[in-house]
Computed example of a mutant assay.
Amino acid sequence: MAADEIKAMIRDAIPDAEVEITDLAGDGDHYAARVVSESFRGVPRVRQHQAVYAALGGRMGGVLHALQLTTAAPVQE
């Protein structure tokens, strides 16, 4: 699964998200994702991660083997 495809799927489900994808092993199979969205504000981290996994439509563990996930709400100034 390509990094651009992962990013697009997350952005489709969470339109305001800032998404950074890093290929950890260079094999297109192990990625890290950093997802920042206002919709995460006040939401427990488990629910934030569930929203991202839902955006990937069941590809975790299949087409996408591993995803190291970091989520957050934007920093307020």
Rank of each mutant, 00 (worst) to 15 (best):
Q76C: 03
P15M: 06
D23N: 03
A54L: 03
A2L: 11
A8C: 03
A32D: 03
P44W: 05
V19E: 00
A73Y: 10
R47K: 13
A33K: 01
Y31K: 01
H65C: 01
P74I: 14
A66N: 03
Y31S: 02
D4F: 09
Q50C: 04
G58P: 04
P44D: 13
H65T: 12
A66S: 08
A33P: 01
M1D: 09
G42L: 05
Q68F: 11
G61L: 07
I10T: 03
H30K: 09
L24T: 12
R41E: 11
A55K: 04
D29Y: 06
H30M: 11
T70M: 04
G28D: 02
L67D: 01
A55P: 02
K7F: 00
A25L: 15
E77A: 14
Y31G: 00
D12H: 12
T71P: 00
A55L: 05
L24F: 07
L56Q: 04
R47L: 10
A73M: 13
A73E: 04
G42N: 13
A73D: 02
M1F: 08
M60P: 02
E77C: 11
V35R: 00
V36F: 01
S37M: 07
L64V: 14
M9E: 13
Q50H: 13
T22M: 06
R45P: 05
R59V: 12
L69S: 06
V63P: 08
A3M: 02
V52N: 02
I10F: 07
V36E: 01
G26F: 09
H49I: 14
D12L: 13
V19D: 00
Q76N: 12
Y31Q: 03
A33D: 03
M9Q: 15
D23T: 06
A32T: 09
G58A: 09
T70S: 12
Y53F: 09
A51L: 15
E18N: 10
G61P: 06
E18M: 13
F40G: 05
V46M: 14
L24G: 04
V35G: 00
R47E: 15
V63H: 09
A66E: 05
V43G: 00
E18L: 15
E5M: 07
L67N: 02
R11Y: 03
A72C: 05
A66M: 05
R11L: 07
G28N: 12
R47Q: 15
G61E: 06
I21H: 00
E38K: 14
E5N: 09
A8I: 09
L64G: 04
G58Y: 10
L56A: 04
A51Y: 09
E77V: 15
R34L: 09
S37Q: 09
H49N: 10
G62Y: 11
H65N: 07
K7P: 00
G26E: 08
T71F: 02
A72N: 08
Y31T: 06
V63Y: 06
L64Y: 11
Q76Y: 10
V46K: 15
T70L: 07
D12S: 15
F40S: 03
A25D: 06
R34H: 08
A66D: 04
I21F: 00
S39G: 07
A66T: 12
A51C: 06
V43I: 11
S37T: 08
L56G: 04
F40M: 09
A55V: 10
A51V: 08
A55D: 06
I21K: 00
A3F: 01
L69M: 14
R41I: 11
P15R: 02
E18D: 12
